[in-house]
Amino acid sequence: MELKALRNFITVVDEEGVTAAADVLHVSQPTLSRQIKELENELGTTLFTRGTRSRTLELTSEGRLLYRRAKEITELADRTATEIAVREEVTGDIHISAAQSVVMRTVAKAMVRLHDKHPRVRVHLHDGYGVNITERLNNGLADFGVLVQPTDMSHYDFLPLPGGDPMGLLMRRNHELATHDRITAGDIKGVPVIVPHGVLVRRNLSGWYRYNGEDLNIIGTMNLLYNASRFVEEGYGCAICPAGLVDASGKSDLTFRPLEPPVYTKLAIAWKKSQPLTPASTAFLDELRAVLQGA
């Protein structure tokens, strides 16, 4: 598959049709249609079906897979070209895929130091969760990943990040448990909760919550907290989550109470052992180590 063919395929998907894509790409419609057909022949599958509106195209399941991979391939190709072109100086892009955490302030401090010394370095943040972050690391789409522990780190070099996020219960301010200073396993028995998907996979709460042999009353899972907090605001249960990620101050309809006994999330920043670091990434690690030594 040629990069040009993949880029043209992406444009057809984004523009929802060959005619509109041909205008954007400044090529004739027959030429673009022929390129898509050649791509289908090369892959031995159909990428599009005619949509409910006669002029629109809809992706098949194979087409959706190719679209996702084509975006990754072209992004990686662009990054590679940029990195090769700028190896003479400390400049370029650093891609960080990270779990949401207040510990990211440590990463931000290192980036501030780096940008003061090398203002042509840019950072691209991608909010994610365990599997998503490691996939981007493994595919070369992320230079660094900030991962909640415990995680299998056998394929990575990493630095532990200091501190940790206290876990607690996010709830409406008028919830009956809002009168508690802290939330115990007994308090939460039977309470409908939304729980981070990664917490379930890693079993972070397995030692904290076992009340008479019963499990949590889980009515939903989440990857990132912001949208889940909107569900909590509307009365769809409570959320078990780290502190400090959404507004739970006196101006908010939400409030947060830490767990008792305390439970903390620990994080580490990782990068692939086998992936050579760019000058920008190497300089960033130098600044991060300096910040961690100072801490």
Rank of each mutant, 00 (worst) to 15 (best):
L267R: 13
K272P: 03
L254Y: 13
L224H: 01
A228P: 02
Q149L: 15
P276N: 00
R257F: 11
T91D: 09
Y226C: 02
R203G: 11
R122S: 08
H126W: 15
A243D: 01
S54Y: 13
N223W: 11
P261D: 12
G190E: 06
T265N: 09
N227E: 09
A290M: 03
E62L: 06
I194W: 11
H126F: 14
S229F: 01
K109A: 06
H95T: 05
R87C: 05
V13C: 10
E62Q: 13
L292F: 10
E135K: 00
A108F: 12
N132Y: 14
P279C: 06
F231V: 01
V12T: 04
V191D: 10
L141W: 11
T45C: 09
Y67I: 14
D187R: 02
G63R: 07
E62V: 12
H124Q: 02
F144A: 08
G17V: 15
L43A: 04
N41S: 06
V24F: 14
K71D: 07
E40L: 08
I96C: 07
D93C: 10
E42C: 10
R210F: 15
F158K: 00
V263K: 07
I133S: 03
R7E: 15
V199F: 15
L57V: 13
I133M: 09
L66W: 05
A239L: 13
S206N: 11
I183Q: 03
E89S: 12
E40H: 01
Y209R: 00
P166A: 05
P242L: 09
F144K: 04
R120G: 08
G163M: 04
G128I: 06
G220H: 00
V112P: 01
V121F: 09
P262S: 14
F231A: 03
T80H: 05
D165R: 03
A22T: 07
E72P: 00
V13E: 07
K71V: 12
S274N: 00
R230G: 04
V12H: 11
R105D: 13
L125G: 03
D143R: 01
P119H: 08
E40F: 05
V146Y: 02
V121M: 08
M153T: 12
Q293P: 06
L170Y: 13
A270D: 03
A98S: 15
D157S: 07
V18T: 01
P242D: 13
R34S: 04
Y67T: 11
F144W: 09
Q149Y: 10
Q100Y: 02
A81K: 02
L125N: 10
V193Q: 04
L39W: 12
L177K: 04
L169Y: 06
V232I: 09
R69C: 10
F231G: 00
G220C: 02
Y156V: 01
K117M: 12
G213L: 09
D286N: 09
M104Q: 07
K272G: 02
D157C: 09
T106V: 12
D187N: 12
A21M: 14
S54F: 11
I73K: 02
A248N: 04
V263D: 06
A280H: 00
K71N: 12
V191T: 10
L66Y: 04
V86K: 05
K273R: 14
Q29F: 12
R105N: 12
A108S: 14
V90Q: 03
